[in-house]
Amino acid sequence: MQSSTKIGIERLPLIWILRIEDFGADVQWSRQDLSTGSFCVTMNVKLLKYHAYSRWFGRPSWNASYLFGRACRRLKPGDIVIDAGANLGEITSALAKTGSTVHAFEPDPYTFERLRKNVGAFKNVHLYQQALADQSGTAKLYRSREFSSDPDFWSQSSSLYADKSNISKDDYTEVEQLSIVDFVRELGSPVRILKIDVEGAEVPMLESILSCGLMNKIDMIFAETHEKKIPQLAERTRALREAIKRDWANKINLDWH
């Protein structure tokens, strides 16, 4: 059985008071407590330690996962979310269960059929056999060298970049691309979460989003970067991180994994 304790609010560091919700704590007070300016916080000590460690001392991807989970818990029916690089639908399914309207993009023909089988029953999920990208058109989608040995697993490595270190330049399929800027503008409603896991194409997508002033239509972006496997994107990724740290640190997280 997990233990809990009561801590006087005056004994808590200021950052804990301001972000107490982040730790999953139950904040309880009475009218009398408020009138005296003091109240107690009942919290699960183990939960507090876990979140404090994950948030400030863990890997960046741990914090990104935590923030993504928190954003998902705040979704409600009717909210719009986008899953760019939906793959087999694990994240799409989790988003759909919140009741929000999910737009899921997966360009690979094989993977798209697996995605449709996994999440097609959700009435609030819209599936697109397209690559959400910085511009509309067609492109080559390159598959992993190991794709034929285990398509379900290696489908997550497919990329629009022929220079990605773990793909085969000889194994590709022509796919449709759809401009992220055009798509979001045509939705006509704010996007609560945009998750991007597109094996390199996140860089031009994010550059396009920022240059077109699209962040006023998107609440949160969670993206994974791939400069280690696509060295040609290293400098552009570094520049993106600097711009995001300066202007959009509370809205864009590049440590999704």
Rank of each mutant, 00 (worst) to 15 (best):
Q2K: 12
S4D: 08
K6I: 14
I7Y: 04
E10T: 07
L14I: 11
E21G: 04
G24M: 03
Q28L: 10
R31C: 06
Q32V: 12
Q32E: 15
G37T: 01
V41F: 05
M43K: 02
N44G: 09
Y50A: 08
A52Y: 14
A52D: 13
R55P: 00
F57E: 09
R59L: 14
S61D: 08
R74N: 13
D83C: 06
A84Y: 04
A84I: 01
E90G: 05
K97E: 14
T101F: 10
H103S: 06
A104G: 11
F105V: 09
T111Y: 10
T111V: 07
K117Y: 07
V119I: 09
H126F: 13
Y128A: 06
L132E: 02
L141N: 07
Y142P: 00
R143W: 03
S148Q: 13
S149H: 11
S149G: 05
S149K: 15
F153Y: 14
L160S: 03
N166M: 09
S168C: 06
D171W: 02
V175T: 11
V175S: 06
S179V: 04
I180S: 04
F183D: 02
E186N: 15
G188Q: 10
I193W: 13
I193N: 09
L194M: 12
D197S: 06
E199T: 08
P204H: 08
S208C: 12
S211P: 02
I218F: 01
D219L: 03
T225V: 13
T225L: 09
R238K: 14
L240E: 03
A243H: 06
I244L: 02
K245R: 14
R246P: 01
A249D: 01
I252S: 01
N253W: 03
